[in-house]
């Protein structure tokens, strides 16, 4: 079979940015939802944790002896879910995309880097909508009684996403794929334990003030302040915004596309 004359004649041109963004976001989402490990980390583990923590009393809570376990654990697991999607999942994906030369090749197409990063962010936000929807539904079924303003929750989640994305892009954008995989999973576990998801920070005694500056701790404590106590969590938002500014700045300086 041969090519008809003229069928390959040059006709260069970039597609409209919106079309690129839509296509790239759809591709990024497909990649996340098809990746078993990412689904496990971002959806299955948080859902399983929330059910286990609320229904099986293997972690004793001081100060919530009235049985309001759901009110303590649902906000903590929400923070974990945001970390999984924006930090761990994104770092691993970017690390391997660099190693496989995907980002290098995309750099030679009309797709601007800003659109690529915007598509990654959008796909993280879509995953978070799924996470929040599912976790809230399961939490409510388990007797969760959220307080506070939904707007304050939104601000915390967006600030947390910025903080975790910056750190995820910094890690994935500078290390090799396998190194990123190991480091991101290790950090996920460490922050799960030290980040106020499973235990209140007060359980760590004198280390509490330092630990409260961790992004996971800021997000879990902040979400609890709003959802459990109806507060505003200004300090936690500021901590997350600082992490976001530091992480995104460092990532934009150090990020290597191959």
């Amino acid at each position: 079979m041969t090519w008809a004359p003229g069928s390959l004649a040059p006709r260069p041109g970039a597609a409209p940015l919106r079309r690129m963004l839509a296509a790239q976001t759809a591709a990024e989402l497909k990649l996340v939802l098809r990746n078993g490990e990412q689904v496990l980390l971002s959806l299955v583990i948080p859902l399983a944790l929330v059910v286990l923590l609320v229904t099986v009393p293997f972690i004793t809570l001081e100060g919530t002896a009235d049985g309001r376990r759901a009110d303590f654990f649902v906000p903590g697991v929400l923070a974990l879910a945001v970390m999984s999607a924006a930090f761990t999942g994104q770092a691993i994906a970017v690390g391997f995309e660099r190693q496989y030369g995907v980002l290098k090749r995309l750099g030679a197409t009309p797709l601007p880097r800003g659109v690529l990063l915007a598509a990654k962010t959008l796909s993280v936000l879509v995953v978070e909508v799924l996470q929040v929807g599912l976790l809230c539904a399961v939490g409510l079924a388990l007797g969760w009684q959220p307080q506070g303003s939904p707007l304050a929750v939104l601000v915390l989640v967006v600030a947390g996403t910025g903080a975790f994305s910056g750190l995820g892009l910094l890690l994935g954008g500078t290390m090799r794929g396998l190194t990123t995989l190991a480091a991101a999973n290790l950090l996920w576990f460490v922050l799960l334990v030290l980040g106020g998801v499973l235990f209140p920070l007060s359980a760590f005694g004198a280390a509490e003030p330092a630990l409260s500056l961790l992004p996971t701790a800021a997000l879990s404590t902040g979400l609890r302040e709003v959802l459990q106590d109806g507060g505003t969590a200004v300090r936690e938002v500021l901590v997350l915004l600082t992490w976001g500014a530091l992480g995104l700045t460092a990532a934009s300086r150090a990020f290597r596309w191959e």
Partner: peptide, 23 residues
């Protein structure tokens, strides 16, 4: 070597890059 998302199907990858172009 390389340069494609390992998790995308062959046709999806080609359509994705095609979507970056005007024509």
């Amino acid at each position: 070597a390389g340069g494609a998302y390992p998790g995308l199907r062959c046709g999806e990858m080609l359509r994705l890059v095609a979507s970056y172009a005007a024509h």
